[in-house]
């Protein structure tokens, strides 16, 4: 039981962080950023030295954790801001479909750039090995990593909330996310806010990369994509642009996945994700605006 709860929370953490990264950018730019998954992949690959050998040549992965964590977060933030400056800035006034496809194309470029440097074979890496020890809580044996994942996610969420609530920059970002042109008329600098959102979103991608990398022990080009799909869905279910909604929906999706894994009959288990997607469609039917809808009248993170 406790194990299930922790599974749900740690899977939900990944989805929630992913959804948050997408919602942040959507909020200020109305861009559904398909390149986000590839930013995650980039952060994971940044741990290795570029080579197409099957053996992973660990590079940043060897750093002690207090250097490793900022390094990966910075990688994500840096790449994400670069994407904004080089690509998305040109699409500020484009329609959402064009922006989506442009982000798709950008993701494609990042992915093949990584493939070119590292080849497509998944490589194994032992990241922060100390974390895979199981620990005992209330009689249940849980991987320490799971616990850290959950704690780290909570810390990130609280940190982000404080940042958005207590700082000048956070205030401007929330205002811009709600009504961009009004915020600009009040002197809020569009470029700064958008770059800030991209930097935060990229850092979140770095956090996912660290968590996912140490959970799976592999570096794989596909890993971003699998989280992304669920993260997108979470963003929409949460009510696009609503940060609180995105987080909540991320955890809900994680819980739904884990619960179905346990509750479905054995024969149906491989189809778990199909049920989750079906549930998503149902939710959208009843709440097309998402669970936390009505921008502006509801509380956000």
């Amino acid at each position: 039981m406790l194990q299930t709860l922790f599974d749900a929370l740690s899977l939900g953490s990944l989805y929630a962080l992913g959804a948050l990264g997408i919602a942040l950018i959507f909020g200020v730019m109305r861009l559904v950023n398909f390149a986000h998954g590839d930013v995650i992949a980039f952060c994971v690959f940044a741990l290795l030295w570029p080579s197409t050998d099957a053996m992973a040549i660990v590079f940043a992965g060897q750093l002690p954790w207090y250097l490793l964590v900022p390094f990966v977060l910075l990688c994500g933030a840096g790449l994400s801001v670069l994407c904004e400056i080089v690509v998305f800035r040109r699409f500020r006034n484009a329609n959402p479909a064009t922006m989506m496809i442009a982000s798709f194309a950008l993701g494609f470029v990042i992915r093949y750039f990584l493939l070119m440097l590292y080849s497509s074979r998944p490589k194994s890496i032992s990241l922060l090995p100390a974390l895979s020890q199981p620990i005992e809580i209330f009689g249940a044996r849980l991987p320490l990593l799971q616990l850290i994942t959950i704690v780290a996610t909570m810390a990130i969420l609280i940190g982000l909330t404080l940042f958005l609530r207590q700082t000048r920059f956070g205030l401007e970002m929330r205002a811009a996310a709600e009504n961009f042109s009004m915020a600009r008329m009040l002197g809020v600098r569009a470029n700064r806010v958008i770059m800030g959102a991209f930097a935060l979103s990229g850092a979140l991608a770095g956090a996912i990369a660290l968590i996912f990398g140490s959970q799976t022990g592999t570096v794989d080009i596909q890993m971003g994509a699998s989280i992304m799909l669920m993260a997108f869905i979470a963003t929409v279910i949460g009510g696009l642009g609503s940060l609180g909604g995105a987080v909540l929906a991320g955890f809900l999706l994680g819980a739904a996945s884990v619960v179905m894994q346990v509750a479905l009959p054995v024969d149906a288990r491989p189809f778990r994700d199909a049920f989750v997607y079906g549930a998503v469609i149902l939710v959208l039917l009843f709440r097309p605006q998402g669970l936390i809808a009505a921008r502006g009248t509801k509380e956000r993170v």
């Binding site: 929330r174 205002a175 709600e178 009504n179 915020a183 921008r295 502006g296 009248t297 509380e299």
Partner: peptide
């Protein structure tokens, strides 16, 4: 800005 408080606005 509907989601912000009055003072934040």
């Amino acid at each position: 800005f509907g989601s912000l408080t009055i003072e934040e606005n």
